[in-house]
Each structure stands twice: as C-alpha cells, then as structure tokens.
Design a protein around this nucleic acid. Sequence first.
DNA 1: TTGTGATCATGT
DNA 2: ACATGATCACAA
Length: 222
Amino acid sequence: MILPPVNVAELMYRAQQLAGLTLGEVAANLALTLPQDLKRDKGMVGQMLEQALGASSGSKAEPDFPQLGIELKTLPVDSSGKPLESTYVCVAALTDLSLQRWQDSWVCRKLQQVLWVPVWAERRLPLAERVIGSAFLWQPDPQQQRLLQQDWEELMELIVLGGINEIRGAHGKVLQLRPKAANAKALTAAVGSDGQPIQTLPRGFYLKANFTAEILQRQFGI
DNA sequence: TTGTGATCATGT
DNA sequence: ACATGATCACAA
C-alpha cells in the first residue's frame, strides 16, 4: 500500500517518476497482472495509476487526493497527442435541487484541480507497451470556467424542466451529458416532461475530447 | 442502486 | 473517421 502524498510537491514528484514508464513496468512494480485488453477492465489503467500515486482507494464521491483537493484523471492519447476518448467527470444529479448553482455543483468542484496523466494508448498497442506521459496540474482558466459553466447551466436547466430525454451527447460545447450505467436497462429517478417523477437512464457529465485536446495543447504546445 | 474507474462499438 | 450511446468491473 502506497501512502497518500503529504503535499503537492510529493504528488508531482511521484508523477514525474512514472513518466516514460510503460504500463507493464508499473504493473510489475505493483505486482499486478495486466489483462489482455480493456474490454472487461475499462477502469484498470486509472485504478493502477491511482494506486501508484497513493490515491485513496474506494469509490467515494470525493477527490482522489482529498487533503490536496486534487482529482486524478488518466487521459488516453494517440501518437499525435490527441485524446482518444471523452473524459468522465461525475454522475449527474437529476433531482437534487440543492446543487443547482454552478459553484456548488459536482462538476465545478471536481474540476477545480486536476492532475492529468496522459497515456500513449492507441488501441493497436498492447496494454503493457503503452507509455505514461508527463503529468501536469490543471485548473480551468476563466475562459474554460465560463465555457464549462455555460454548458452545465444549459444542461441542468433542461434536466430540471423535464427535458432529460431530449438531451444527447451533442449538447454543449465542452461538457456533455451521456449515459453512465451498467446497461440500457438501468434506471434512476428524474423529472418528466410535465414535471412528474419518471425513471430514466442514469447520466454522467463528460468533457469532450476537443476540450481536453486544447488543455493538452496549451500544456505541451503545438 | 449509486458511486468510482473508464473504454467499447455502433451509427452517422 | 469520429462522436454518441452503450457497456464492463467493483465497492459500499
């Protein structure tokens, strides 16, 4: 068990030590066995890096490094440095009216400080050969904050007004709402089109790949 | 069931 | 080719 880092400097130091290593090397250091692929272990890489950096285990709804207020996100990138996937942020509260202010929202709080860990992870690359990149700490700048808030407020308004079943992934410029469930039969409480309670597919907020691509570009240059 | 970690795989 | 919608594993 790797203890949590006591401060940001220690966290960043640990992250730097991982840069350049393959997932196979990290797995060996942790005495973990890598699966053949991620089809049945989609969160495997993220959880392994959590462990390597000393993040608190478990699936609690709080940052990975609570005392530092830092969220850890692995980001799969192709050989040109572009994200291969959108980035999951958190589940969407479909009924809780106390979270209707942006500053109080889970999305805002989770994205206050993110440690991005790029992983060169093209699908043709065997898992063990994928390489960890240089991690960096990110805080949304005012423009990014504004874009996120705009999308969030637009999506939340639709949710509260009973329009959840009309929302698709294309809504929003940088933030999107998509299914986040075990399968299409999973249900959770929400507001219907006439304001009545309904059951619907659980959703989560995701950062679009174009947005995380811009974050990477600002960090590493063109 | 809801939250964590995400990627898969199909439609466009 | 790429984003959207669907899905997988596990903890509490």
